[in-house]
């Protein structure tokens, strides 16, 4: 009787383990397909833009950056398992990364202003001193 119970218990455990195995593996492959499809969409968009010039560069870049963030989310959340960690850990990792918002805004604005400034000066020089 006891042995029978043990066998049943073992069988149940094995079932559960096999079940957990299947659902986790299925989730891993689901994330793989998401990453692959997003990458293919990016490449398709790049190719379409290369040959037709559509959509406009700004819109294209916004789409590229959004899709990049989608991929980053799935890698960090599922592959690196961060989504399933405790909230303390998630916050400790994610909050410092918010610095990137300032970092990107400040530096890209700076780079852009250098170009605008230089191009403005070039135009002015052309206006004040016409070619001999």
């Amino acid at each position: 009787m006891e042995m029978e119970q043990q066998t049943t218990l073992a069988a149940t455990l094995e079932d559960e383990s096999a079940h957990a195995f299947d659902s986790t593996v299925a989730r891993i492959w689901r994330v793989f397909w998401i990453l692959l499809i997003v990458t293919l969409v990016e490449i398709a968009l790049a190719t379409v833009h290369y040959f037709t010039g559509m959509p406009p560069v700004l819109l294209r870049n916004v789409i590229f950056l959004s899709l990049t963030l989608v991929k980053a989310f799935y890698i960090v959340a599922e592959f690196m398992h961060l989504r399933h960690e405790v909230k303390n850990l998630i916050l400790s990792i994610m909050i410092p990364l918010l610095l990137f918002i300032w970092f990107i805004t400040a530096f890209l604005t700076d780079g852009n202003s250098w170009r605008v400034d230089r191009e403005r000066r070039v135009t002015q020089t052309e206006q004040v001193s016409p070619a001999p």
Binding site: L99, F103, F107, L108, D110, G111, N112, W114, R115, R118
Partner: peptide, 20 residues
């Protein structure tokens, strides 16, 4: 390491935006 790569990529972006 994310900040290291972030700094690299942002300096690349800055330089690229500053070029005509």
């Amino acid at each position: 390491d994310a900040f290291t790569f972030g700094a690299f990529l942002i300096s690349y972006g800055t330089t690229r935006l500053s070029a005509s």
